[in-house]
């Protein structure tokens, strides 16, 4: 694979767009769940806010903070994915996505399980950036499992 292709796969248009215009960006004042995601190595730093109703449904999810294009777009896409889902589904998708980013080899099922998020597959060519892609999802798991 040439270097150009690798970079294009990493910085896909959708990822760049979410980086430029992050969705659901900001603090949520009536959040019921909260988590802090921080990568001390590169300084990526996000706060994640969720409002989960009594039925376990995510009514609203936002994030704020700063970091690289990969971490920010990943957080942004995560919020668009999870609104309206319930906490269990969110946890399941989070585990799938983290597996998708970190497994040595991927099966067809692994790719299907993450749906449109498979556009982050290019990040796998850049091992030091994998943590950027999983940072917000890791925070999500901490928030919904209360750990």
């Amino acid at each position: 694979m040439t270097q150009e292709v690798k970079l294009d796969e990493l910085y896909q248009e959708v990822i760049l767009d979410h980086n430029r215009r992050p969705r659901n960006f900001g603090k949520l004042d009536d959040a019921t769940h909260y988590a802090h995601g921080h990568n001390p190595l590169c300084g990526d730093d996000y706060h994640l806010y969720l409002k989960i109703d009594e039925n376990g449904k995510i009514q609203k999810i936002t994030f704020e903070g700063s970091g690289c294009a990969i971490s920010k777009s990943s957080a942004s896409m995560m919020t668009t994915f999870l609104e309206g889902k319930n906490g269990d589904e969110a946890e399941k998708l989070g585990s799938h996505f983290i597996g998708f980013m970190t497994k040595d080899t991927l099966s067809k099922e692994d790719r299907e399980a993450v749906g449109r998020l498979k556009l982050f597959e290019g990040v796998r060519h850049f091992p030091v950036r994998v943590k950027c892609a999983t940072l917000a999802w890791q925070a999500l798991l901490n928030a919904v499992t209360g750990k």
């Binding site: 430029r20 590169c42 690289c68 294009a69 920010k72 850049f126 950036r129």
Partner: peptide, 10 residues
């Protein structure tokens, strides 16, 4: 508007 890590990767 561009994070140093993205600069580093490119």
């Amino acid at each position: 508007g561009i994070h140093p890590h993205d600069i580093g990767t490119v």
